[in-house]
Design a protein around this nucleic acid. Sequence first.
DNA 1: TGCCAACATTGACGGATGTCGATATGGCAC
DNA 2: GTGCCATATCGACATCCGTCAATGTTGGCA
Lengths: 119, 119
Amino acid sequence: MSLGDPALQTPGDTAQCCPSLVEAPLDDAEADELATIFAALADPVRCKLVSLIAAAGEACACDLVDPVRKSQPTVSHHTKVLAEAGLIRGERRGRWVWWSVVPERLAAVCSALTRATPD
Amino acid sequence: MSLGDPALQTPGDTAQCCPSLVEAPLDDAEADELATIFAALADPVRCKLVSLIAAAGEACACDLVDPVRKSQPTVSHHTKVLAEAGLIRGERRGRWVWWSVVPERLAAVCSALTRATPD
DNA sequence: TGCCAACATTGACGGATGTCGATATGGCAC
DNA sequence: GTGCCATATCGACATCCGTCAATGTTGGCA
Protein backbone atom coordinates (compact mmCIF):
# COMPACT_ATOMS: atom_id res chain seq x y z
CA MET A 1 0.00 0.00 0.00
CA SER A 2 2.43 2.58 -1.08
CA LEU A 3 1.31 4.34 -4.18
CA GLY A 4 -2.40 3.98 -4.08
CA ASP A 5 -3.60 5.03 -0.73
CA PRO A 6 -2.75 8.19 1.05
CA ALA A 7 -1.93 11.06 -1.23
CA LEU A 8 -2.85 10.17 -4.75
CA GLN A 9 -6.53 10.80 -4.60
CA THR A 10 -8.00 13.92 -3.12
CA PRO A 11 -8.89 13.04 0.45
CA GLY A 12 -12.63 12.69 0.68
CA ASP A 13 -12.94 14.54 3.94
CA THR A 14 -10.89 17.54 2.88
CA ALA A 15 -13.40 20.23 2.09
CA GLN A 16 -12.42 22.62 -0.68
CA CYS A 17 -13.49 25.46 1.55
CA CYS A 18 -11.54 26.52 4.59
CA PRO A 19 -12.25 28.84 7.52
CA SER A 20 -11.92 32.55 6.94
CA LEU A 21 -8.84 34.16 8.37
CA VAL A 22 -10.39 37.58 8.62
CA GLU A 23 -14.09 37.27 9.40
CA ALA A 24 -14.01 36.20 13.02
CA PRO A 25 -11.52 34.92 15.57
CA LEU A 26 -10.54 31.33 14.80
CA ASP A 27 -10.93 28.55 17.30
CA ASP A 28 -8.13 26.06 17.86
CA ALA A 29 -9.24 23.56 15.25
CA GLU A 30 -9.75 26.18 12.54
CA ALA A 31 -6.38 27.76 13.27
CA ASP A 32 -4.70 24.37 13.01
CA GLU A 33 -6.43 23.62 9.72
CA LEU A 34 -5.46 26.91 8.11
CA ALA A 35 -1.91 26.74 9.45
CA THR A 36 -1.49 23.27 7.98
CA ILE A 37 -2.52 24.49 4.55
CA PHE A 38 -0.18 27.47 4.68
CA ALA A 39 2.61 25.27 6.03
CA ALA A 40 2.33 23.19 2.87
CA LEU A 41 3.23 26.32 0.91
CA ALA A 42 5.83 27.57 3.38
CA ASP A 43 8.78 25.94 1.66
CA PRO A 44 10.51 27.29 -1.46
CA VAL A 45 10.84 23.84 -3.00
CA ARG A 46 7.14 23.21 -2.62
CA CYS A 47 6.30 26.64 -4.05
CA LYS A 48 8.43 25.78 -7.02
CA LEU A 49 6.75 22.42 -7.45
CA VAL A 50 3.30 24.00 -7.45
CA SER A 51 4.41 26.60 -9.97
CA LEU A 52 5.97 23.95 -12.21
CA ILE A 53 2.86 21.79 -12.10
CA ALA A 54 0.47 24.71 -12.55
CA ALA A 55 2.40 26.20 -15.45
CA ALA A 56 2.51 22.85 -17.25
CA GLY A 57 -1.11 21.97 -16.54
CA GLU A 58 0.11 18.63 -15.30
CA ALA A 59 3.58 17.23 -14.74
CA CYS A 60 5.17 13.82 -14.38
CA ALA A 61 6.99 13.36 -11.09
CA CYS A 62 10.06 12.33 -13.04
CA ASP A 63 10.16 15.80 -14.61
CA LEU A 64 10.13 17.58 -11.25
CA VAL A 65 13.39 16.30 -9.83
CA ASP A 66 15.77 18.18 -12.11
CA PRO A 67 14.20 21.67 -11.93
CA VAL A 68 14.24 21.81 -8.13
CA ARG A 69 17.67 20.18 -7.83
CA LYS A 70 16.68 17.87 -4.99
CA SER A 71 16.86 14.12 -4.63
CA GLN A 72 13.98 11.94 -5.75
CA PRO A 73 12.97 11.04 -2.17
CA THR A 74 12.91 14.71 -1.24
CA VAL A 75 10.65 15.56 -4.16
CA SER A 76 8.39 12.65 -3.28
CA HIS A 77 8.17 13.92 0.28
CA HIS A 78 7.18 17.39 -0.88
CA THR A 79 4.53 16.21 -3.31
CA LYS A 80 3.06 14.15 -0.50
CA VAL A 81 2.82 17.19 1.77
CA LEU A 82 1.16 19.23 -0.98
CA ALA A 83 -1.26 16.43 -1.79
CA GLU A 84 -2.23 15.94 1.85
CA ALA A 85 -3.04 19.64 2.01
CA GLY A 86 -5.32 19.14 -0.97
CA LEU A 87 -3.34 21.53 -3.15
CA ILE A 88 -2.26 19.02 -5.78
CA ARG A 89 -3.59 15.69 -6.91
CA GLY A 90 -1.74 12.71 -8.39
CA GLU A 91 -2.80 10.15 -10.95
CA ARG A 92 -0.93 6.97 -11.74
CA ARG A 93 -0.40 6.22 -15.44
CA GLY A 94 1.62 3.12 -15.99
CA ARG A 95 4.84 3.51 -14.13
CA TRP A 96 4.50 7.25 -13.84
CA VAL A 97 2.55 9.59 -11.57
CA TRP A 98 1.17 12.77 -13.07
CA TRP A 99 0.51 15.66 -10.75
CA SER A 100 -1.94 18.51 -11.26
CA VAL A 101 -3.05 21.42 -9.10
CA VAL A 102 -6.49 21.59 -7.50
CA PRO A 103 -7.57 25.08 -8.54
CA GLU A 104 -10.68 25.01 -6.35
CA ARG A 105 -8.45 24.42 -3.37
CA LEU A 106 -6.21 27.35 -4.25
CA ALA A 107 -9.30 29.49 -4.73
CA ALA A 108 -10.59 28.43 -1.31
CA VAL A 109 -7.35 29.47 0.35
CA CYS A 110 -7.55 32.77 -1.48
CA SER A 111 -11.08 33.23 -0.26
CA ALA A 112 -10.04 32.60 3.33
CA LEU A 113 -7.52 35.41 3.04
CA THR A 114 -9.81 38.12 1.79
CA ARG A 115 -13.34 37.26 2.78
CA ALA A 116 -14.86 40.18 4.65
CA THR A 117 -11.68 42.18 4.53
CA PRO A 118 -12.48 45.87 4.90
CA ASP A 119 -10.75 47.62 2.03
CA MET B 1 15.80 51.13 18.93
CA SER B 2 13.29 48.62 19.99
CA LEU B 3 9.84 49.69 19.14
CA GLY B 4 10.32 52.08 16.32
CA ASP B 5 12.46 50.44 13.79
CA PRO B 6 11.97 47.04 12.35
CA ALA B 7 8.42 45.92 12.39
CA LEU B 8 6.17 48.75 13.29
CA GLN B 9 5.97 50.49 10.01
CA THR B 10 5.41 48.68 6.79
CA PRO B 11 8.83 48.03 5.29
CA GLY B 12 9.29 50.35 2.40
CA ASP B 13 10.82 47.74 0.15
CA THR B 14 8.12 45.15 0.69
CA ALA B 15 5.98 45.37 -2.38
CA GLN B 16 2.29 44.68 -1.86
CA CYS B 17 2.40 42.44 -4.88
CA CYS B 18 4.12 39.09 -4.90
CA PRO B 19 5.09 36.62 -7.63
CA SER B 20 2.38 34.38 -9.02
CA LEU B 21 2.45 30.81 -7.84
CA VAL B 22 0.67 29.49 -10.88
CA GLU B 23 1.60 31.51 -13.94
CA ALA B 24 5.13 30.32 -14.59
CA PRO B 25 7.84 28.35 -12.83
CA LEU B 26 9.36 30.39 -10.00
CA ASP B 27 13.04 31.13 -9.79
CA ASP B 28 14.88 30.73 -6.50
CA ALA B 29 14.34 34.27 -5.25
CA GLU B 30 10.63 34.28 -6.05
CA ALA B 31 10.15 30.91 -4.39
CA ASP B 32 11.92 32.15 -1.26
CA GLU B 33 9.81 35.29 -1.16
CA LEU B 34 6.51 33.45 -1.47
CA ALA B 35 7.55 30.75 0.99
CA THR B 36 8.46 33.39 3.56
CA ILE B 37 5.02 34.95 3.31
CA PHE B 38 3.27 31.62 3.65
CA ALA B 39 5.57 30.65 6.51
CA ALA B 40 4.32 33.68 8.40
CA LEU B 41 0.83 32.16 8.23
CA ALA B 42 1.97 28.59 8.85
CA ASP B 43 1.47 28.68 12.59
CA PRO B 44 -1.88 28.34 14.35
CA VAL B 45 -1.05 31.06 16.85
CA ARG B 46 -0.24 33.49 14.06
CA CYS B 47 -3.43 32.57 12.20
CA LYS B 48 -5.37 33.30 15.37
CA LEU B 49 -3.60 36.63 15.79
CA VAL B 50 -4.45 37.71 12.26
CA SER B 51 -8.07 36.68 12.72
CA LEU B 52 -8.32 38.50 16.04
CA ILE B 53 -6.84 41.68 14.60
CA ALA B 54 -8.86 41.51 11.40
CA ALA B 55 -12.13 40.85 13.18
CA ALA B 56 -11.58 43.77 15.53
CA GLY B 57 -10.34 46.13 12.84
CA GLU B 58 -7.39 46.89 15.06
CA ALA B 59 -6.24 45.39 18.33
CA CYS B 60 -3.97 46.39 21.17
CA ALA B 61 -1.12 43.95 21.74
CA CYS B 62 -2.17 43.69 25.36
CA ASP B 63 -5.50 42.24 24.23
CA LEU B 64 -3.87 39.49 22.17
CA VAL B 65 -2.08 37.61 24.94
CA ASP B 66 -5.11 36.13 26.68
CA PRO B 67 -7.01 34.81 23.62
CA VAL B 68 -4.05 32.83 22.29
CA ARG B 69 -2.96 31.63 25.75
CA LYS B 70 0.72 32.25 25.15
CA SER B 71 3.25 34.33 27.04
CA GLN B 72 3.79 37.99 26.21
CA PRO B 73 7.24 37.38 24.64
CA THR B 74 5.79 34.66 22.44
CA VAL B 75 2.99 36.92 21.21
CA SER B 76 5.51 39.69 20.57
CA HIS B 77 7.62 37.26 18.55
CA HIS B 78 4.65 36.23 16.42
CA THR B 79 3.50 39.78 15.73
CA LYS B 80 7.03 40.58 14.62
CA VAL B 81 7.03 37.68 12.15
CA LEU B 82 3.67 38.76 10.74
CA ALA B 83 4.78 42.39 10.46
CA GLU B 84 8.02 41.45 8.72
CA ALA B 85 5.95 39.56 6.18
CA GLY B 86 3.93 42.73 5.61
CA LEU B 87 0.69 41.12 6.75
CA ILE B 88 0.07 43.36 9.75
CA ARG B 89 1.21 46.81 10.75
CA GLY B 90 1.74 48.27 14.21
CA GLU B 91 1.27 51.78 15.52
CA ARG B 92 2.49 53.05 18.86
CA ARG B 93 -0.03 54.99 20.92
CA GLY B 94 1.36 55.99 24.27
CA ARG B 95 2.47 52.84 25.99
CA TRP B 96 0.47 50.57 23.75
CA VAL B 97 0.91 49.20 20.26
CA TRP B 98 -2.13 48.81 18.10
CA TRP B 99 -1.99 46.23 15.31
CA SER B 100 -4.03 46.18 12.13
CA VAL B 101 -4.00 43.97 9.07
CA VAL B 102 -2.71 45.14 5.69
CA PRO B 103 -5.61 44.14 3.43
CA GLU B 104 -3.71 44.98 0.25
CA ARG B 105 -1.06 42.51 1.29
CA LEU B 106 -3.59 39.76 1.93
CA ALA B 107 -5.16 40.53 -1.43
CA ALA B 108 -1.76 40.27 -3.10
CA VAL B 109 -1.15 36.84 -1.60
CA CYS B 110 -4.60 35.81 -2.77
CA SER B 111 -3.79 37.03 -6.23
CA ALA B 112 -0.59 35.01 -6.32
CA LEU B 113 -2.59 31.89 -5.60
CA THR B 114 -5.14 32.20 -8.35
CA ARG B 115 -3.69 34.38 -11.07
CA ALA B 116 -3.91 32.51 -14.36
CA THR B 117 -5.37 29.45 -12.75
CA PRO B 118 -7.48 27.54 -15.28
CA ASP B 119 -10.85 26.96 -13.64
C1' DT C 1 9.16 -15.83 -14.24
C1' DG C 2 12.79 -12.40 -13.85
C1' DC C 3 14.58 -7.89 -14.58
C1' DC C 4 14.30 -2.99 -14.65
C1' DA C 5 12.31 1.65 -14.06
C1' DA C 6 9.49 4.93 -11.31
C1' DC C 7 7.98 6.13 -7.11
C1' DA C 8 7.31 5.62 -1.94
C1' DT C 9 9.05 4.72 2.68
C1' DT C 10 12.45 4.40 6.36
C1' DG C 11 16.04 6.06 9.40
C1' DA C 12 19.31 9.33 10.61
C1' DC C 13 21.31 13.81 10.74
C1' DG C 14 21.59 18.98 11.11
C1' DG C 15 19.40 23.24 11.08
C1' DA C 16 15.26 25.98 11.80
C1' DT C 17 11.51 27.34 14.85
C1' DG C 18 8.11 27.87 18.85
C1' DT C 19 8.23 28.58 23.64
C1' DC C 20 9.22 30.82 28.02
C1' DG C 21 11.87 33.11 31.99
C1' DA C 22 14.76 36.84 32.66
C1' DT C 23 16.01 41.20 31.28
C1' DA C 24 16.17 45.56 28.61
C1' DT C 25 13.79 49.60 26.60
C1' DG C 26 10.50 53.22 26.18
C1' DG C 27 6.75 56.06 27.85
C1' DC C 28 3.44 57.89 31.17
C1' DA C 29 2.09 59.55 35.91
C1' DC C 30 3.26 61.16 40.20
C1' DG D 1 13.81 62.59 39.25
C1' DT D 2 11.32 57.62 40.80
C1' DG D 3 8.21 54.01 39.99
C1' DC D 4 5.27 51.39 37.10
C1' DC D 5 3.39 49.46 32.94
C1' DA D 6 3.48 47.76 28.06
C1' DT D 7 6.34 45.89 24.80
C1' DA D 8 10.70 44.13 22.78
C1' DT D 9 14.92 41.43 23.06
C1' DC D 10 17.95 37.76 24.72
C1' DG D 11 19.32 33.03 25.86
C1' DA D 12 18.25 28.39 26.40
C1' DC D 13 15.66 24.45 25.53
C1' DA D 14 12.77 21.00 23.11
C1' DT D 15 10.56 19.88 19.08
C1' DC D 16 9.72 20.09 14.26
C1' DC D 17 11.24 19.85 9.51
C1' DG D 18 14.06 19.40 5.14
C1' DT D 19 17.40 16.47 3.30
C1' DC D 20 19.53 12.26 1.54
C1' DA D 21 21.30 7.26 1.26
C1' DA D 22 19.43 2.93 1.54
C1' DT D 23 15.66 0.09 0.89
C1' DG D 24 10.87 -1.38 -0.22
C1' DT D 25 6.92 -1.61 -3.48
C1' DT D 26 4.60 -1.44 -7.76
C1' DG D 27 4.00 -1.85 -12.76
C1' DG D 28 5.60 -2.83 -17.42
C1' DC D 29 8.28 -5.68 -20.50
C1' DA D 30 10.90 -9.54 -22.41
